[in-house]
Each structure stands twice: as structure tokens, then as C-alpha cells.
Amino acid sequence: MAESITDDRPRVRGRVVVAFVLTRLGGALFVLWAVATLTFFALRLIPGDPALAILGGPGSQASPEALEAVRREYGLDQPLFVQYLTQLWRLMMGDLGRSYSLNMDVAPLVGVQLGGTMQLAFLSLALAWLLALGLATWSTRGGKIARSIGSGLEIVAAALPHFWLATVLILLFSIWLGVLPPISTPGIAGLVLPVLTLAIPLAGFLGQVMRESLLTALESPFVLSARARGESERGVRLVHAIRHAALPAISLSGWAFGSLISGAVVVETIFARPGLGRTLLNAVTERDVPVVVGVVMIVAVVYILMTLLTDVASRLADPRLRAA
């Protein structure tokens, strides 16, 4: 069997880490460029005249002069390639263009909405983690029945659509019990239902993964060794098994964050909560292309950063990954 022995000389390790970070940053920049390019050209596929869309769509009966003015203002009279380069340049400068429908710059608009969505996503991720870990540890402690219940809960939770879960939670807590507001008000009370809505399905997914690796860890020889040293059942879980259960969940967090942002589209709409998701949905419905591009770019940046972070976190948590 091949053995992997990490080279522990600090200089070598340092170089490996730097190389890793540089490669990943390079990759991230590439992905951002490709996202911008892909969106730019994909949006050229929209049928109809963008100038007309800016002026309110086909129903607006804009005069040819007005159209011409809009074209000049938005640079639509330039050749496609020039437009593309201009857009790339602007993106690099942090200029996301002007909204068609709201008559304001996209960057500040999106920047304002980012905070709320981030708050929602981070809280939901944390709650999902706790729920999944709790369920996984509880259900693997008991006998067969607890395991079946645990896995059943996870499957059901993972199958819950956000829009329905939100509806049921609103019915339960706002309409019947009347303890929480049905729309997102400022403050903690208004956050509870949106966070629960996003966290529960995610906890179902994470729980399945965690339970699987928890069980694998509990069956592995190092747990037998620990027991043979006199470690208690609780010690085995706290000292050994939970770390192993957390590993895949850590590496899934980047993906989970992405799915939370996507879920925010629904949740922010239902709870009338300002945020990126709702902005995006409105922009899609209104066909406000610059806003859509702005949100997509921001989400891509956040998503890439999160994946990078979780990769680093995974490496920190699992020394075996560092060797590879």
C-alpha cells in the first residue's frame, strides 16, 4: 500500500500553500471573466431591441429619435465587440451599468441588497449546520428506530420546497399561533421564519451526509482503539466522530451557500424581505438586463469566495487533504 507522508519542512509547506492559493485565485478570476462573457453574449439572444426595452417595451411607441438617443447613451450603437470590451472594463472598475427600469446605477442598488441576503444566508447556514449535526448525532446514538426516524426526517426535510415550507410556517406561527410576523420586519422576530425556511431543507441534505460519515467513523478501527483505551460513548462522539462527520459538511458549505442564495429568491419574495433574490426576480420579470447581470456577477463573486473559503477550511480541518 502506498503511503503518503507529508513533507513537513516549513519552506516546502509554505510554497505548496502559496501555490495552492495562487492557482485557486487564478481559477476564480477566470471563472469571473467567463461568467461575465457568458452573460454578456447570452443576453444578446434576447429577441427585440434593447433600446425599446429601456423605453418601456414594445407598447411604449417610442419615437425613432428617442430610440437613437437611448442607443447612444447606453453604447448600443457601437459594434458588439466594443460593447463587450466596454462592459468588461466597466465591470473591472466596479461599474455595473444603469438599471433600465429603476433609472439608477446598478452597483449601489445591488450593494444595498447584498447585506440582507448575506445575513439571511449565513444565519441559515449556521442553523442548518446545528440542526443537521444534532439530528445526525441523535439518530446514530439510539437503536434502529431512531435511525429510521432520523433518516426519514432528513429525506422529508430535503424534499420540502421553500415556498411551501414558508407557507406552512406562516400558517403555523403567524396565523394560528400569532407569535411571529408573516412578513419580514426589521429585528430578530422577522428573521426567524425566513431563516427556518432556508435552513430546514438544507439541514436535511447536510444531515444525510453527516450521518453517513458519522456512521463510517463510528465503525472504523480508530474508534475501536479509542474505546479500548476506555473512552466513553460520549467521548467517542465528541472527540472523534463529530470531526469526521463535520468534514464533508464543511466541504459542502460552499455549495450550500449557493443554494441558499438561490433559495433567497423565493424566501425574500414570500416574506417581502429586501435582498438580492427579490431584486433579481423583479429584474427578471421586468427584463431589466443590467440589474440581472449585476446580481449574477455579485452572486458569482460571493459564491466563488465561499468555495475558496470552504476549500481552505477543509484543508485546515483535514490534514489528509494537505498531503494530496
Binding site: V239, H240, L247
Partner: peptide, 24 residues
């Protein structure tokens, strides 16, 4: 049993790659 394991009787398993916790 727990009080005795490790103190009165010790266990050595095959292949310590998986018999020692790889994360610790």
C-alpha cells in the same frame, strides 16, 4: 468496563493508519 479498558487491558490493532484517528 470503561474504567478497566486502557488501564488493565490494552488493545493494539492492525494497520494504525486507520487505528489512530487520522484527524488528531
Amino acid at each position: 468496563w470503561r474504567r478497566r479498558r486502557g488501564r488493565d487491558v490494552g488493545l493494539i490493532l492492525q494497520d494504525a493508519l486507520v487505528s489512530l484517528d487520522p484527524l488528531r
